[in-house]
Amino acid sequence: MKFDETRPIYIQIMENLKSKIARGELKPGDKLPSVRELSGKIGVNPNTIARAYSELEREGVIMTRRGQGTYVTDDPRKVTEIREEMAASALSTFLESLRALGLSRDEILSLIAKNLEEDER
């Protein structure tokens, strides 16, 4: 896992796990590596990983079963929610940069439609 060291590491670990869930690489009920295992794998302080896990647990994305480990939530609605959340955030960044170029609503819409058509051809 590559990090952007100018942003909090725990947030990037959260984003990374969420995008794996959104893409279906991690499925509801899948077991996650322990804090220690993940720390060794990505070379990050375990306290930082524990913080990412506890924030994700607070958000209902993952759950800890005592003595058994940490799992992706088995609530499929949560997965939809994460996908929608990530799509919304990607869309808002995208729209922001187009508006910064001075494009109007109609120009943006026609640009998207045109690009999608070309993609499908």
Binding site: E5, T6, P8, I9
Partner: peptide, 15 residues
């Protein structure tokens, strides 16, 4: 804490 500093300054610890 490093993550707090990254958050506050928008930079890596090295920077």
């Amino acid at each position: 804490e490093p993550d707090e500093l990254r958050n506050r300054y928008g930079r890596s610890i090295e920077d």
